[in-house]
Write a protein that binds this DNA or RNA. Structure first.
Length: 485
DNA sequence: TAGCTCGTTGGACAA
DNA sequence: TTTGTCCAACGAGCT
């Protein structure tokens, strides 16, 4: 294996990707050993996370990064265009021969990595050496494979393998950035913010900075982690960590999360025995690794069904009769099914949806409405601040039944029961569907059973766009027929 | 290799 | 109201 021994007297470039943080950033720490360092971000028009909500987050994350860099006497160069091409041009202009970055794992990021290596070798300024470090994960996706080197398709054995192999996560080298003259560009000119006032409520919900990520993590570990196992299913409860957007943009590393938990509660073996909440949470962090593992080995699954047989499944398309209107009602939170509408409106208003409700709205779209899971996946990618191609593809395919560890076809979530079970007091529904505030709790999750007069009083809340029981039966029949064909 | 066990998140129905 | 059983078979993963 070649020894890593760059000439530190020569200038280097560090390329920020989805690791917009200064702490625990190994590639940045290594790059910082160079006497002269350029920090670069490329706004690539082909990036996977270019939805409206992601762009909003990116805008503020970049602003925060620029501010933090300024305190360190550094500046950020922002290039707009295709990653490899822009980086190559920048390196040539600045006579840089060393490039550091976190490795990318999604199909688009892997293309970028390959191009960086190829174009770098062909640079006018002499060969550009590229140093990729572990991206924003605990492990490289190849780390936890089966003994024959093939990838896992089921989470539990994947998790067991991880636990057996074990790992001792260490903080990366401290980052001490060399000073650099210059001014960062004005982020406002990048056009990342929405032109309509749709993001108004985002400001009340989120603070997309690295320091807020760490503060939120500390608060979660101290207050909510130990009760996570039960509280995480209650959408009105602040029982989840809300780390997902920070993880998606790398403002926190999963290693920082892991270490925060093990420092507070002890090693994993102790956590497993004594703190089921924390154990469940750390398993969720491992689910994120599993999603990366799957997308890495099956890159087509952001667009196609993992299970090849499902590629022939008769998903309904939006150009079929009545389907456009149903998809629109789902997106707008006007399906007439309270927990579904509350979830979709939470998503629209805050850029985020509680995980329990994500499963319910996904099951509703894919099973009750019979629509293609890709419509849902695309909408989530556009509207979630934590949009992540790996987790999103895995999650939707789980709901559709076409993915790894997928829900069995006869598992159709009943939104009424889910509401009654996990939103017992109705506070989640009432928050996002205020028309139903005065509906008695008994019928809150099934307002179609209200007497007509009382229903009319509920501010024009629509009747359900499908009958839950009929559409369930039809879904079961579709899956049954597909299986037999 | 053959055989065995098991699979993140559920619902309906009967007793 | 609560609890148990079935839904359905299949293929991943392990021994």
């Amino acid at each position: 294996m070649a020894t890593f021994s760059p000439d530190l007297s020569k200038p280097a470039v560090f390329l920020f990707r989805r690791d917009l943080r200064l702490k625990d950033n190994k590639a940045l720490a290594l790059a910082s050993m160079h006497k002269k360092l350029h920090l670069v971000y490329v706004l690539d028009p082909h990036r996977e996370h270019q939805g409206g909500a992601s762009s909003w987050w990116l805008h503020h994350a970049l602003k925060a990064l620029v501010k933090d860099l300024k305190k360190n006497g550094q500046c950020l160069s922002i290039l707009v265009g295709e990653t490899a091409k822009k980086v190559k041009e920048f390196c040539e202009e600045n006579q840089v021969s060393q490039l550091y970055a976190a490795r990318g794992y999604s199909p688009i990021e892997r293309d970028q990595d390959a191009q960086l290596i190829t174009l770098g070798a062909d640079s006018k300024a002499g060969a550009l050496q590229t140093h990729f470090e572990l991206g924003n994960y605990l492990f490289e996706p190849e780390y936890a494979c089966k003994t024959d080197g093939s990838p896992y398709l089921v989470f539990t054995p994947f998790w067991r393998n991880l636990c057996k192999k074990g790992f001792a996560p260490l903080h990366a080298l401290d980052v001490a950035l060399p000073k650099q003259k210059g001014e960062s560009p004005n982020i406002d000119t990048l056009g990342l913010l929405p032109t309509i006032g749709w993001d108004k409520q985002f400001y009340e919900c989120w603070s997309p900075t690295e320091s807020s990520a760490l503060a939120a993590l500390e608060q979660f570990v101290q207050i909510n982690a130990s009760a996570y196992k039960d509280q995480r299913d209650i959408p009105s409860s602040p029982g989840t960590s809300r780390m997902s957007p920070y993880l998606a943009f790398g403002q926190v590393s999963p290693r920082q999360i892991w270490i925060a938990c093990t420092e507070a509660f002890g090693p994993l073996s102790k956590i497993e025995k004594k703190y089921p909440g924390v154990y469940t949470y750390l398993k969720e962090i491992a689910w994120r690794e599993f999603a990366n593992h799957l997308l890495f080995f099956f890159p087509r699954t952001s667009k196609e069904e993992l299970r090849v047989s499902f590629q022939k499944f008769p998903w309904k398309k939006q150009n079929q009769k009545g389907m456009q209107a149903k998809l629109k009602a789902w997106k707008a939170g006007n399906t007439g099914v309270p927990i579904v509408d509350a979830g979709m409106r939470q998503l629209w208003q805050t850029g985020w949806m509680h995980n329990r409700v994500r499963m319910v709205v996904a099951s509703f779209l894919v099973k009750n409405l019979g629509l293609d899971w890709r419509y849902g996946a695309a909408w989530f990618m556009d509207t979630l601040v934590d949009a992540d191609i790996a987790s999103n593809s895995m999650g939707w395919q789980w709901a559709a039944g076409s993915g790894a560890d997928a829900a069995p076809y006869f598992r159709v979530f009943n939104p009424t029961l889910q509401g009654e079970r996990f939103d017992k007091q109705g506070s989640y529904v009432k928050t996002y569907v205020p028309e139903l505030s005065d509906v008695p709790l008994k019928l809150l999750h099934k307002p179609w059973e209200l007497p007509p007069m009382e229903l009319a009083a509920a501010g024009g809340y629509p009747g359900p766009i499908v009958s839950l029981s009929d559409s369930r039966k039809q879904a079961l029949a579709r899956y049954q027929q597909f299986k037999d064909s």
